[in-house]
Amino acid sequence: MKKSQILTTSLIITILITTGLLSGCTTSTNENDNGENFKFALLDGTTAELNDYRGKIVILDLWATWCSPCQYQMLELKKAYETYSRDDLEILSINVESRESNTDIENFLNQFEEYDYDLEWVFGNEIDDTKKYKQKPDSGIPSICFFDRNGEVIFKHVGVMMFDELPEGWTGDETLLKEKIDEFIIQ
């Protein structure tokens, strides 16, 4: 066998091995991602997925415009949004009422803006399936679900969740948003 032939053959083999190894790496990365994923529509008409936010603690907030407690929940989520870095925490407020359009959601957000409450996190609708992210499949709203940095469900809650302080005479659940976020960020 000629020297040049040996060189060409070994070069081809090296390329094949390298390509195989690289493709193996890519596949293994996807295989290691055992986190949850779901798709939802953003208000600008594009689609997003939960796995777009891997590497952060994600709070999924399920709500509807007619739900007064959900409006209260937004004010508490705003405190969380302003307290933590975007590297650590992202909030996805997904409207679960099929009868409510993007315009309804935008009008709702504009009402907050009128009172200088800009809700700047991710808002959307048309989520694939919400049942598995609720405390019980038939639980009401507001419903909160925490995902860890790998997209695994780590906490579910139904009803208003206060940020760091319970109002006087509060009879609801006493679990605080801040306590949970701190706990999950450290983990």
Partner: peptide, 15 residues
Amino acid sequence: VELQECNGNTGICYS
């Protein structure tokens, strides 16, 4: 008629 039920104490609504 579009009707929702809510619990004002726990802040939970059902559609």
